[in-house]
Design a protein around this nucleic acid. Structure first.
Lengths: 200, 200
DNA sequence: TTATTTTCTAAGCGTGCGCTTATAGTGAAC
DNA sequence: GTTCACTATAAGCGCACGCTTAGAAAATAA
């Protein structure tokens, strides 16, 4: 089985449009509640249009899931600035991660809630990517504890909570006055520092 | 349309067993990915066994969703002790709510992630129950701010985050050393007080 | 016991599913 | 202009879906 990015998601224009259309429909109806005909219809194509690009509905979900988790990992990695103090690092990383979750909430919903529809092999690849994203946050929490900036009851638990807060955005977003990605970014970077007991 | 508890969920023993079986299968495969035959098979019954009790698959999901949200609301209401100070109230309510989410994580997953499969009328009833649960937490946050116990950047945002943390438990539980409801209850009641800036 | 209601099954209807096959169109390379 | 790989379609296969119906079995009431 291929696990490298290019091998999984296919670079052709039509394949990208298919993933985009599928995200919309999966987000609205769930993977099991979506038909391959609906995806094709969204692009005004024939019912069989998906098959030259993905050999099954599950392969399409896998490509979407891979791309989504890969992008999220990239966002978090790019946002982290290991030269800075832990307070700045955490604040920035959580802001960018939360912002991304809000901005791409439909895609996020699919890649986070439909994982159980993947084959066991594909599932393992995706959870591997997710673990690497969590590790970035955990490393910052550890650094803050080591430097005395943070006081936490338990690194594992606090990291879990930080990730959980951000990942759950796609379930409720938008809501009330939190209907702009930057508003959530501001709130969550503040709340993250509270969770780790950062001295300000 | 009926919206009272007894009218929705049906008290018969067989109906209760059907809801229980359906929760298991829905949690594993999603609503759209589950067949009525699977639910019946889990109880060693014929494919049509559901229909004397619920007139459609959607009605069964509605009954499950209603019961689940009704129970969660009851848990939160019972845990709240308006005579106490806000710090104690928040700590207790979050502990019990988080504990419930962990204990009933399969049921919680169904009632929180499959809501879009409900008819618009049924959906509205459920979100009404959910709003009342959120309101309990929000009232405590408001009380803490009024008494000077809490310092929050924004009541709405912090309440959102508190609920989000607890609701998301069903997505990841169990994980690592957080595989016991009481462990999550302890962690989350602590983290909740951090989120509201409680003076200790 | 008998009468009545409720719960279940056997059988199957009509529909729409994921996916395949054979073939036609399309654009890039030369 | 021809070749060739790629991308799309039309048609349809076999299957399993949600749900219905008629009636049997079981539980309840008289």
């Amino acid at each position: 089985m291929s696990t490298s990015r290019d091998a999984v998601i296919s670079g052709s224009k039509a394949a990208a449009r298919l993933r985009e259309a599928a995200v919309e429909v999966f987000a609205e109806n769930g993977y099991g509640g979506t038909t391959t005909r609906q995806i094709a219809a969204r692009l005004d194509m024939s019912p069989a249009a998906m098959y030259p690009h993905y050999k099954s509905k599950e392969e399409l979900l896998y490509a979407i899931s891979y791309e989504g988790h890969d992008l999220a990992l990239e966002v978090v990695r790019t946002a982290d600035l290991p030269g800075e103090d832990a307070t700045t690092r955490l604040s920035t990383v959580i802001a960018r991660f939360a912002e991304w979750q809000a901005e791409h909430h439909r895609r996020a919903r699919v890649v986070q809630y439909e994982l159980t529809a993947l084959t066991p092999e594909h599932y393992r690849v995706i959870t591997g990517l997710r673990r690497r994203t969590t590790q970035v946050v955990r490393t910052i929490v550890d650094a803050g504890v080591a430097s005395g900036e943070f006081t936490v009851p338990d690194t594992e638990g606090v990291t879990l909570a930080l990730m959980s807060l951000c990942v759950d955005i796609c379930r409720w977003y938008p809501s009330g006055r939190y209907n702009e990605p930057h508003a959530i970014a501001n709130l969550y970077s503040d709340l993250a520092l509270r969770l780790v007991g950062a001295v300000r």
